Computed example of a mutant assay.
Amino acid sequence: MTIRAVVADDQELVRAGFSMILDAQPDIEVVAEAGDGAEAVAAVRAHAPDVLLLDIRMPVMDGIEAARIVCAESPCRVIMLTTFDLDDYVYDALRAGASGFLLKDVRRDDLTHAVRVVAAGESLLAPTVTTKLIADFTSRGAVRPAVPVSERLAVLTARERETLALLARGLSNAEIARSLVVSEHTVKTHVSNVLTKLALRDRIQAVIAAYESGLIVPGDTTP
């Protein structure tokens, strides 16, 4: 199956370079390009791509707002493009529904791998990297519990809540399985249930939800 992609960046050379690399792959087709956030939203509506590569800083409509609209309106997965490793807007992008982010100087192979991973429904960032990223923002006060844990997570079973807490601490499925003394298949089921019940797109959103609900606090590494 061919992965349909849209590339949105206000720098023409960056946009053209990414498109050329992706189009050269036998399983990826760039169906449209966009020079600003509004054009990116229009391109997604017109072409229904699987993946949108979206620059954070763009004219007319920035990448954060574009990601929020795209993620709310469609199943299209969003990869944010940024210049700096811990861009101040990265957290907002993840909250908007993005599945991860890439630096603009990403290597060719890493770019194509990222598109395939996200198109398959996975988060772009490894759990440990995600946790470090979110912890950086929470340590600066960017995240505060929006509602009590008991209210936000009331729909989860006790074991699903345990799974969410371990996931948010950066554990892989295999590590969660060892911690809970269950099979990896069972962990995958718990993770899937957590995402479904909390209406989350992926593991990155689950990590954010764990912090925002107060289930996990910055610096908490209790197993």
Rank of each mutant, 00 (worst) to 15 (best):
R4E: 14
R4C: 09
V6C: 05
V6W: 05
D10G: 09
E12V: 15
E12M: 13
E12C: 05
V14F: 12
V14L: 12
R15Y: 10
A16F: 12
A16S: 13
A16E: 14
F18P: 05
M20D: 13
M20I: 05
M20Q: 15
D23K: 11
D23S: 15
Q25N: 08
D27P: 09
I28H: 10
V30I: 09
V31E: 04
A32M: 08
E33G: 13
E33Y: 04
G37A: 08
E39N: 02
V41C: 09
A42E: 12
A43E: 07
V44A: 13
P49S: 03
V51H: 06
R57D: 06
P59Y: 03
P59K: 04
V60L: 01
V60S: 05
I64A: 06
R68A: 14
V70D: 02
S74F: 00
S74I: 06
S74E: 03
P75Y: 02
M80I: 07
T83N: 09
F84G: 00
D85A: 14
L86D: 13
D87W: 12
D88R: 13
Y89I: 00
Y89W: 11
V90N: 08
Y91V: 12
R95Q: 11
A96E: 04
A96K: 04
S99Q: 12
G100M: 01
G100I: 11
K104C: 07
D105H: 09
R107A: 13
R107E: 14
R108W: 02
D110M: 07
L111T: 04
H113Y: 11
H113S: 07
R116K: 06
V117M: 03
V118E: 04
A119I: 02
E122A: 09
L124V: 04
A126E: 12
P127Q: 07
P127D: 06
A135N: 14
S139R: 12
A142Y: 10
P148Q: 00
S150T: 09
R152K: 11
A154P: 01
T157N: 00
T157S: 15
A158C: 00
R159L: 07
T163M: 08
T163G: 09
A168P: 03
G170L: 03
G170V: 01
L171Y: 10
E175V: 00
E175K: 10
I176G: 05
R178Q: 15
S179I: 02
V182I: 15
V182C: 11
S183W: 06
H185V: 15
T186E: 13
V187E: 06
V187N: 10
V191Y: 02
V191N: 01
V191A: 06
S192Y: 08
V194Y: 02
L200S: 12
R201C: 03
D202C: 09
Q205C: 06
I208N: 08
I208S: 09
S213W: 02
G214R: 12
L215H: 07
G219R: 09
T221D: 13
P223I: 14
